[in-house]
Simulated scan of single mutants.
Amino acid sequence: MTRPDRRRPGRPSVLNIRAVGADALRLWTERGFAATNWNDLAEATGISTRTLLRHFPSRAEIAWLGVAPATDRLREVLTRAADDAPVAVVVRTAIVESVSRDPQIHELAPAWLRLISAEPTLAATAPAVYQPWIDTLTGYLARRLPGAPTAICRALATAYQAATFAALTEWAESGAHGDAADSVDRMLRWLDVHTPGTVPDGPAREP
Rank of each mutant, 00 (worst) to 15 (best):
M1K: 07
T2C: 01
R3K: 12
P4S: 08
D5H: 03
D5L: 01
D5F: 00
R6Q: 08
R6P: 15
R6K: 15
R7V: 00
P9V: 08
G10P: 02
V14W: 11
L15E: 04
N16E: 12
I17D: 12
A22G: 02
A24N: 10
A24C: 08
R26L: 11
L27G: 03
T29F: 00
T29C: 02
R31Y: 01
F33T: 04
T45L: 01
G46K: 00
S48M: 03
L52Y: 08
L53K: 15
L53F: 06
R54T: 11
P57N: 02
R59G: 05
E61H: 12
W64K: 04
L65W: 09
G66D: 15
A68W: 01
P69N: 05
T71E: 13
T71W: 06
R73W: 00
R73C: 00
R73G: 03
L74T: 03
E76P: 04
V77Y: 09
L78T: 00
R80L: 06
R80Y: 05
A82F: 03
A82L: 12
D83Y: 00
D83T: 11
A85M: 05
V87Q: 02
A88D: 08
A88I: 05
A88R: 01
A88Y: 01
V90G: 00
R92Y: 04
R92P: 01
T93E: 12
I95P: 08
I95T: 15
S98V: 09
V99S: 02
R101W: 05
P103W: 03
P103R: 13
H106F: 03
H106G: 07
A109T: 15
P110E: 03
L113E: 05
R114V: 06
R114K: 09
A118M: 09
A124V: 08
T125Y: 02
Y130E: 13
Q131C: 07
Q131M: 07
Q131G: 09
W133C: 07
T136F: 09
L137D: 08
T138I: 07
G139R: 02
G139T: 10
L141P: 11
A148S: 14
P149R: 07
T150M: 14
T150N: 07
A151R: 11
I152Y: 13
I152M: 12
I152P: 00
R154N: 10
R154Y: 02
A155F: 11
L156E: 10
L156G: 05
A157R: 02
A159F: 01
Y160H: 15
A162E: 07
A166S: 10
L168E: 12
L168R: 14
E173F: 04
G175D: 02
A176C: 10
A176R: 15
H177C: 12
S183V: 03
S183C: 06
S183I: 01
V184P: 10
D185R: 15
D185K: 03
M187V: 05
M187Q: 14
W190S: 14
W190G: 15
D192W: 06
V193F: 14
H194N: 06
P196G: 09
G197Y: 03
T198D: 13
T198H: 09
P200I: 01
A204T: 14
E206I: 11
E206Q: 11
E206W: 13
